[in-house]
């Protein structure tokens, strides 16, 4: 399989504290990579480097390289807005903007220059269908997005990311605090999306990682302990620490 993202010797420190040290990793195209590890292991930081949202934190030091389709996205002078259009992100807490459902979805495409009403409507419908939310909201697109339930809001955020037609989707614990049914719906959505998108999923839920991903990276204290196919890692982990984490002996 082709590599969509390649991470080479990536280190990240914040206020002189190491968050990631010398991580080497590959994300295959059209697959789901799961990143798991205990709290403070650098999962979210790694994710935020992929769309350069880490730029918002002051006093950071990044070393190494991250390639997206062969282009180093850490190089200075890179157009981060264009990068973030290609690499969408869904956060652990659903953050609909304080606007209507339609406006939430049209926000991204409008930013990137799509003004045609018809085209926007098509995009909105297509993204909502992909995120499996269309049937629940099709009659109330003009209502405030804040009125939706937590699970619906999270699928709205996924749809909003899809509306930008990105190539990569980053998800930072997208089912955090959601009920099992909403969680299931989101996992199903991810399964159907991986046919045409590269997905990176950070999750604290080991079983979710086992259920939904193709490959897994296990991080511990900023170090990549093990990386391999989900099947391998969950049946024959090479490192004892991975085994301990999966079987719940720590973390």
């Amino acid at each position: 399989m082709a590599a969509k993202i390649v991470v080479k010797d990536l280190s990240f420190s914040y206020n002189h504290q190491r968050v990631l040290s010398a991580v080497n990793l590959m994300v295959e195209a059209d697959s789901i990579l799961g990143i798991m590890g205990p709290a403070k292991s650098g999962k979210t930081t790694l994710l935020r480097i992929f769309n350069r949202l880490c730029d918002l934190i002051p006093h950071v030091r990044i070393e190494g390289e991250v390639f997206l389709d062969g282009e180093n996205i850490l190089r200075p002078g890179l157009n981060v807005d264009r990068l973030r259009k290609r690499v969408g992100m869904v956060f652990d807490k659903p953050v609909p903007l304080p606007r209507s459902i339609f406006e939430n979805l049209a926000y991204g495409p409008r930013l990137h220059g799509i003004k045609d009403k018809k085209r926007l409507e098509e995009l909105v419908e297509r993204s909502l269908r992909l995120a499996q939310l269309w049937d629940e909201v099709k009659d109330r697109l003009n209502e405030s997005a804040m009125k939706l339930s937590g699970g619906q809001q999270q699928r709205l955020c996924i749809a909003r990311t899809l509306a930008m037609e990105p190539e990569v989707i980053l998800l930072d614990e997208p089912t955090y605090g959601l009920d099992p049914i909403s969680t299931l719906k989101i996992e199903q959505t991810l399964q159907s999306l991986k046919e045409s998108y590269t997905i990176v999923l950070v999750s604290n839920n080991t079983w979710q990682v086992a259920r939904t991903t193709d490959n897994v990276a296990f991080l511990l204290m900023g170090e990549l302990i093990e990386y391999g196919s989900t099947h391998e890692i969950f049946t024959v982990p090479k490192d004892k620490r991975t085994d301990d984490y999966i079987s719940g002996r720590f973390g």
Binding site: N51, L53, L56, D81, R82, L83, R84, K85, G88, M89, F91, K93, V95, L97, P98, Y107, G108, L111, H112, C157, R160, T161, M164
Partner: peptide, 18 residues
């Protein structure tokens, strides 16, 4: 204004001024 609004908007590829 919640920080998450800002983050959410930037993650959608909006510039700081947008």
């Amino acid at each position: 204004v919640p920080y998450s609004y800002k983050e959410g908007s930037l993650a959608l590829g909006a510039t700081h001024w947008q």
